[in-house]
Nucleic acid binder design. Structure first.
Length: 217
DNA sequence: CACCAGGCAAGTA
DNA sequence: TACTTGCATGGT
């Protein structure tokens, strides 16, 4: 089976169907990083409400969020769920940025990519998907983001197996696709859109843009 | 009413 | 190592 060809076919079909999605929704790298933490196991809709509130109350900066009491931050992000846990995670990330890079995301992204990824994974509350989302969408780095939708869709197309590790899936994608941030950006956005709008129904149903690929299996 | 969403860490065996 | 559980809100 030609993995490279399948990965490309899925991308081309989805890209034709949805067009450019221009991810990540967010105006600055900082806002994107905050969103990446808040959206853990949470619908983006609920995160949007939280980010709007943070902006409305003028708390969208590392200094403001770090100096605020936990209960204040928790109240701001309440709509995104797990607000107590996420307050700790958000602050852990902001302290990390502060301590290691003087609070500068620009400086942070000057660090060697895989060193930075390893460091991010040491921060409490940042796992592989969150780290990679920050690297790709806030930093424009060429890392493929793997999430629950990626797993479901690729598994249905016989590209991966259920028990594959995050890194194994990521390495496969990065091996068979050009290491291009723009491509990875759009690809992950397409997979999430497909999952949200089609894959909740039956896998590869008629309406799903990927439905037409059933015959290619 | 139940179920799920763009995860992660900590606990258990 | 491999599973399980807690975390929590808002939409369908």
């Amino acid at each position: 089976m030609d993995i490279s060809k399948n990965l490309w076919n899925i991308y081309l079909v989805l890209d034709r169907h949805f067009g450019s999605l221009n991810w990540w929704p967010g105006e600055t790298p900082f806002e994107i990083a905050v969103g990446a933490i808040l959206t853990q196991n949470t619908s983006w809709k609920n995160v949007e409400i939280a980010i709007k509130k943070i902006k409305a109350k003028k708390y969208l900066s590392a200094e403001k969020l770090l100096q605020a009491e936990d209960y204040i931050v928790a109240e701001l992000i309440k709509s995104s769920g797990y607000h107590n846990v996420k307050t700790k995670r958000l602050k852990a990330f902001l302290r990390f940025m502060d301590n290691e890079y003087g609070g500068s995301m620009v400086k942070m992204f000057e660090e060697d990519l895989w060193i930075l990824r390893a460091k991010l994974l040491e921060v409490n509350g940042i796992g592989e998907e969150t780290a990679d989302s920050i690297l790709l969408y806030a930093g424009g780095k060429p890392v493929f983001v793997v999430d629950a939708y990626t797993r479901r869709i690729f598994e249905r197309h016989g590209i991966i197996e259920r028990d594959w590790s995050y890194r194994k899936i990521q390495e496969l994608c990065m091996m068979f696709l050009p290491q291009n941030p723009g491509l990875y950006n759009q690809y992950h956005a397409l997979l999430v859109n497909t999952g949200k709008y089609y894959c909740k129904k039956k896998p590869l149903c008629e309406e799903c843009p990927l439905g037409e690929m059933r015959k290619l299996q």
